[in-house]
Structures are given as C-alpha cells and as structure tokens.
C-alpha cells in the first residue's frame, strides 16, 4: 500500500570499539543481517558508516519500518540514536536494493574523513531530507564504483 509508505532517517554514534578491522567485521555482519531481514519485510534503505557514526534511511510499510527501527534501538552498538525524520512519503528513494553500504573502501574512508574534517561534517545540523539526499548520492556513487 503506497499510502502506508514511510521513510525514517536516523544517525547514531558508532560504539563498535577496537581496531578498524574489528569495526569493519561488525559493520559487515550488521549489514548482512539487515539485507536478509529487511528484504523479507519490504524495507529498503541506505546505511552510511564511518568511524564516528551510522546514518541510515529506512523505507517501507510503517509496521515493518517501526519493527526494524525498534530492533536497531535495542542494539547497544548504536549509541545516542537521533531520529531525524519519520514521515509518510509518496515513493521510495532507495528502491533497488535492500541496503547499501557506503564507505567500504579505504579510499572512501579517507574521503569521508576529509569531508568530516574539512567541512565540519555534522549530521545533527542536517535536516532529515538533506541527510537522505546525501546518503542517496553516496550510495549511488558506491554502486557505480562497484559496477
């Protein structure tokens, strides 16, 4: 039902500790689980991760989005979760994939680190929609790079 389509945008501090290798493993396992779980319930979206935070867009039927978000809220690895937006939307921004992981490569990690340092990258200052747009662009770039 299109009239029940909702988009949720949040970010949280990354609490996965230790070396970047362990961090990467954790993220990959979260991502793998998310891809499987979310595809089944019709939730799509994008996950952005860097050393400091997770940022995620979830799109889908409200019940599925609410259940997915509740699961995230109960995950201690997500600290200080800030919900930026939870709105009814006409259409999905992220239709093709269950989840997209942005920032897998070393080059990307360096790039996003630069953005954060140089621009004073502060997710809390963005509105939900702008965050969404940023996530979308980054996800598409990653897709293109992988192709």
């Amino acid at each position: 039902m299109t009239d029940d389509l909702r988009r949720l945008v949040y970010y949280s501090r990354n609490r996965t500790s230790g070396a970047s290798g362990g961090m990467d493993g954790t993220i990959r396992s979260i991502l793998a689980a998310s891809r499987v779980n979310n595809a089944r319930v019709g939730v799509t979206g994008a996950l952005m991760f860097n050393a400091g935070c997770f940022a995620q867009v979830l799109e889908g039927p409200s019940a599925a989005v609410e259940a997915t978000f509740e699961r995230i809220q109960q995950d201690e690895r997500h600290g200080e979760v800030s919900l930026l937006a939870y709105d009814a939307v006409e259409a999905r921004l992220f239709t093709e994939w269950s989840m997209a992981y942005v920032g897998a490569s070393k080059a990307d990690a360096d790039r996003y680190g630069d953005v954060a340092d140089a621009s004073g990258f502060d997710l809390s200052r963005m509105t939900g929609d702008r965050l969404c747009a940023v996530l979308h662009r980054l996800a598409l770039e990653e897709e293109a790079a992988a192709a």
Binding site: R6, L8, S62, V65, E66, F69, E70, Q73, Q74, E76, G79, V81, S82, L83, Y86, A88
Partner: peptide, 17 residues
C-alpha cells in the same frame, strides 16, 4: 546504564515518534 540508554531512545509507534 543500559536501561537508561535503551529505554530513553526514541520510539516510533503508530506512525509517530
């Protein structure tokens, strides 16, 4: 600490935050 953190996190429920 875990309770204060987890319970205090935003809920989405019935289309609302």
């Amino acid at each position: 600490n875990r309770l204060v953190d987890l319970v205090g996190r935003t809920y989405v429920l019935d289309g609302q935050m």
